[in-house]
Amino acid sequence: MVDNTIFDSLCADFEDILYSDLEGHASELLCIKYLQQISDSRSKKLVRGVIMGANLRPIISLHVQITEAITTMSGTPHPVNVHFLHVAASAQTYMSEEALRAIGVEDAVVVGESVDKTKTLRLPLLINGYRVLVSPSPSESHFAHINILGEDFIHASRAQVFFGGDPPRFEIAFP
């Protein structure tokens, strides 16, 4: 059995972000539609996010797509815009069931991986062109609809994160 208590306590106060916020308000602020398929898979060098809500949540939209290590019947080779909440305290990146379904992961087989029901499968995905092992957000959690951008992505991409200023802003610069 997978122990999600650390993830639950890390994200205990994120109930102010609803799925409708990702589709609506966050998409409007970012000027990017949530889970929309796009044709341009080039990595962006600077991605500006937004600060959302009274709790100053750093939200950013990055394109995500499956890698050659994933075989899927319904997956798309095109990237999909996924809105992430950046959580510097999260060691790993998580994606919601809806976001994984948008790229066709619900029926995926990861080449070379054995199925082990006692651990969470980490999927090799491309986020802004960088390969990261992504875990599905725990379905039983109250924040299962949220995509968490963790430090594993920041490390893998060698990105620099800026969060601050007046007015507050959030952006990620890539090498």
Rank of each mutant, 00 (worst) to 15 (best):
G104D: 10
R169P: 00
I66V: 14
K44E: 13
V87F: 07
R169E: 13
K33T: 12
N128H: 02
L22S: 11
F153N: 03
A54T: 13
I127D: 04
D3Y: 06
I172F: 03
R101M: 04
S39L: 07
H155V: 13
V110R: 05
E15F: 11
F153Y: 15
I6V: 10
G164E: 09
I103W: 03
A26H: 07
S39D: 09
T67L: 11
L46T: 15
I103R: 00
T76G: 10
E171C: 12
M52N: 02
V47H: 08
S9V: 01
E28C: 08
H25L: 12
A54D: 15
N147W: 06
P138G: 00
S41W: 12
L46E: 14
L85S: 07
S43G: 11
K117W: 09
G24R: 09
F84P: 02
S9F: 10
G104L: 04
Q36M: 12
L100D: 00
Y94E: 03
Q92V: 07
S9Q: 13
F7N: 03
T93G: 04
L18E: 14
M52D: 06
V2G: 02
I66G: 04
L125K: 01
R57K: 14
V110N: 05
I51R: 00
Q160W: 02
G129E: 08
F143C: 07
D13Q: 12
I70G: 04
Q160S: 14
L100A: 07
Q37K: 15
I70H: 01
I17M: 07
C31D: 12
P168T: 13
E106D: 15
S114G: 09
L56K: 15
Q36Y: 02
V105N: 10
F14D: 06
L29N: 09
V110G: 03
Q65V: 03
V134N: 01
R158T: 01
